[in-house]
């Protein structure tokens, strides 16, 4: 099976990162929500980091997959 693990991994990070970032953006003013982490909007920050990692991984996964599929 020629599935490069970076492809599903990248998409997972993109999906989770996008979900967290969007949620972070919509709840930016909610002080009660971010009280456990002393006011830091951790959803937005970490969501954005995961989104970037995912976008970085997917092209590498596709390239790896093409290499595997070559006869």
């Amino acid at each position: 099976m020629d599935l490069d693990p970076r492809t599903p991994l990248g998409w997972t990070f993109i999906m989770i990162g996008a979900t967290l970032s969007l949620f972070g953006m919509t709840t930016n003013a909610d002080a009660h929500l971010y009280a456990p982490c002393l006011g830091i909007n951790a959803n937005l920050v970490w969501g954005f980091v995961l989104l970037l990692i995912g976008m970085f991984l997917v092209p590498f996964g596709h390239r790896g997959q093409r290499r595997r599929e070559k006869p």
Partner: peptide, 24 residues
């Protein structure tokens, strides 16, 4: 394949716990 994926999910989930815990 799942273990590879789960390792990265583990790292992505635990790093904020450590960073926010030490900050707190």
């Amino acid at each position: 394949y799942n273990q590879v994926l789960q390792f990265f999910i583990f790292a992505a989930g635990f790093l904020p716990i450590v960073l926010l815990g030490v900050y707190k």
